[in-house]
Structure formats: structure tokens, C-alpha cells
Design a binder for these strands. Structure first.
Lengths: 201, 201
DNA sequence: TTTTTTATTGAACACTGTTTAATAGATTTG
DNA sequence: CAAATCTATTAAACAGTGTTCAATAAAAAA
């Protein structure tokens, strides 16, 4: 029995080694510029062997996709210590923004790269969990009298759109021309402008 | 002289034929899934000849990128007939959303595909023109007493982020799980929720 | 000790963007 | 008109891609 277990352990370790190599190159060069041969040669491995551990390139990607969402979710949950739900709501947006700044490549992988196929799999489920978390916080705000007369899901979607829009423009660097400020500053100012709008609602 | 002109005309026509073929395939399959060989064979042309008219694949892409922005800009400018700047402001967001719905592939090409290299070239200049147009409308709103105490550029960026976020989530189909509504409906509800927030500002 | 399973490899296949030498055709020049 | 030049086109080649697969060696089970 212990032989089989050792085998399984070794398999898990190889799996991890490949994933480590893939993560490094994926986050450095993006999806398209990362090749199976690159991933393999970085750990002195043959390209074909990768397919013993992963179905295809997209499966490797999806594991990292999921990884990113777990990291993201943990940063969201870290705000549970904030008592006032409205303060928690405001902080959630900042977590989003800070995540996009600190983990730009993960953000790209999670939200902007196309090769995720359709919305399926485990990674997507975690994404949904993140949305539900946000929705829950908004509900708590509404329970305390904020955002009255506004549909919870619509407000959730709107918030998500705004924050994602900010991060998306940042990640694609699609604003440096018109907005002369540094991108990081601009993200915060954009978010603060939004907060100013909802402050009395 | 007329011989040279005919030559030039033929060159322009070939350029257009390639672009027509490329547009069709790009908008159908996206950037990565479109190959020079596909573009060429669709018009019974040899792959190498493409390079007589275009520097590389990315140059073809950029011409379509620019094309999309010109179409987009024309739809923005079509709202100039609306007198009240605030009404014009609200309509601008809807133009954005409708454009993403009706020309999803253009929207992807213009705002979401990575292969545009850095923010350079003619296409980007037109993008900037679109932002400036939005900024101008917001300024007119402010001149009439709306959005007081809010920095014009920050508000412009915030608006852009919100609308782009809505369209981006739509284009990537990253919401069908949590939000059971049809995506098109959800986009409008999200935008209306935003409008409801700024209505009295 | 055989048999079977497991893990690995290198070669091959069908693609990709791009370059280039050869080429045929048209245009210009002597 | 003939020779030289320019223009447009092509097939072949290069280096790269994701993926498959027969061969293979090593380990485990029979």
C-alpha cells in the first residue's frame, strides 16, 4: 500500500512542478506566448510528458485560473472583520483594485484572457462565490437602510462592472493618453468618485 | 499617368479584398484563431502575397481596430442632435452598450484583444477622440450645474469604467451563472441602476 | 520470472507567422 | 522594337506551435 502512496505522492509532486513552471511563464508572458515546450524545458522535461498530467494547455491554464480566484476570495474574506457592512462594501472595491495592481497577470488570467472556453468548471464556481459574497454584503447594507429601492442583483452587477471596468482599463493600459495621471492614482480617483455618488444613498 | 492611376486603383482594391476577408474571419474567430493562410485562401490568394500589402498580421488587425472606432465614433456623434447635455450623457452610455451588443466582435477587437501592442497609432488616437467627446459632454453637464464638486476627468474615467465593465463582462460572458437574467437585459438594468444613483447629482 | 502497469521520450503531424529566391507580366527606357 | 527595370505573385523554406503516438525503460504485480 505504501508503495502506491509514494507513487501517488510523486505524481502529485510532478503535477506541482509542471504547474509551478507554467505559472511562472503564464504570468510572465501571457497565455498565447507560453508554449508547452517552454513549460517542459524549464524543468528539463519532455513536451509530450506534460500530457500525462494534463489533458491539454487549457487545463493547465484553468488550474491557475482557479488558483487566482482562491487567492482573490481569501482577500475578500479577510474583510469580514469589518463590522459596518457599508464600510465592508467600500473596502471590497479596493480589494479588487489592489488585486489588479499587485497581481495584474492573475487578473488578466482570471478576467480578461479569452481561452477559458465557456463558463464552466471549478474556477468559475469560485468566481460565482465571489459574486455571491459581494451580493451578500450589499444585502446587509440594504438591510440597514442603504441603497433603498434598488434591486440587489442589479446593484451587484453594477458595482462589479464599475470595479472590473477600472481594473480592465488598467490591465490593458487603455487610458494613459487622455488621463495624464499615473494609472494607479487614476483607479483610486475613479473609485472615489463612484463612492462619492453613492455616499448619501 | 492614367496607367499609374489604374495600378494604384488595383492596389487599393487588392488591399480592400484582403481587409474584407480578414474582417470576416477576425470577427468570426477572433485574433488568434485567424491565420494569414486562412485570409489568403478565402480569396484564392497566396499567403506570402499578403505581406506585399501589409507589414504583418498585427497591421491588418489595426486597420480593423481603427475601422471599429470610426463606426463607434459616428454613433457617438449621432447624438449631437440631443440638446440637453445630461440626456446626451445618458444616451452615450446606451450607445456604448448597444455597440457592444450589436458589434460584439468589433468590441472585442477594440477593447479586449491584447495584440494591439502598446497604445499607439491612428486607432488609438480615435479612441482618445471618443474619450474627449465624453469628457466634453460631461463638462457641459457640469456647466449647467450637474455633477458639482466632482473632477471632470475622474468622472469621465469612472463613467467609462462602468460602461466598459458592463460591456466587458457581457463580451466575455462572465455572469450567466449568478445573474439568471438574459445578458442584454442585465446590461440595461445595471446601467439604469447607475443612472438612478446619479439622477439627483 | 514472467506479465502488466506506469511514466517518459523523441519523432511525427498538421498547423502557425514570416522571409525569400524565383518568376512571370507589365511598364519604362534606350 | 529590344533591353532593362519595376511590380506583383508564388512556392518553398524556417522556426515555431499544440498534440498524438509508437517505442521504451523502469517499476510493480502476478
Amino acid at each position: 500500500m505504501s508503495i502506491a502512496k509514494r507513487k501517488e505522492q510523486e505524481k502529485i509532486e510532478m503535477h506541482k512542478r509542471i504547474l509551478d513552471s507554467a505559472r511562472k511563464i503564464f504570468l510572465e508572458k501571457g497565455y498565447e506566448q507560453t508554449s508547452i515546450r517552454n513549460i517542459a524545458s524549464a524543468i528539463n522535461y519532455s513536451p509530450g510528458s506534460i500530457y500525462f498530467y494534463f489533458k491539454d494547455k487549457s487545463e493547465i491554464f484553468h488550474e491557475l485560473h482557479k488558483e487566482g480566484f482562491l487567492l482573490f476570495l481569501s482577500q475578500m474574506k479577510a474583510l469580514d472583520s469589518i463590522n459596518d457592512p457599508y464600510e465592508r462594501y467600500k473596502a471590497l472595491g479596493l480589494v479588487f483594485i489592489r488585486f489588479a495592481q499587485k497581481h495584474t497577470d492573475y487578473y488578466n488570467l482570471m478576467f480578461l484572457v479569452s481561452e477559458t472556453g465557456k463558463a464552466e468548471g471549478e474556477g468559475f464556481q469560485i468566481a460565482q462565490e465571489a459574486i455571491e459574497h459581494l451580493s451578500g454584503v450589499i444585502q446587509q447594507c440594504q438591510d440597514r437602510g442603504r441603497f433603498q429601492g434598488l434591486h440587489n442583483k442589479h446593484f451587484t452587477f453594477m458595482t462589479l462592472s464599475l470595479v472590473h471596468g477600472i481594473c480592465s482599463l488598467y490591465c490593458k493600459d487603455r487610458m494613459s493618453g487622455f488621463f495624464e495621471k499615473s494609472s494607479e492614482e487614476l483607479m483610486l480617483h475613479g473609485y472615489e468618485t463612484f463612492i462619492a455618488l453613492i455616499e448619501q444613498k
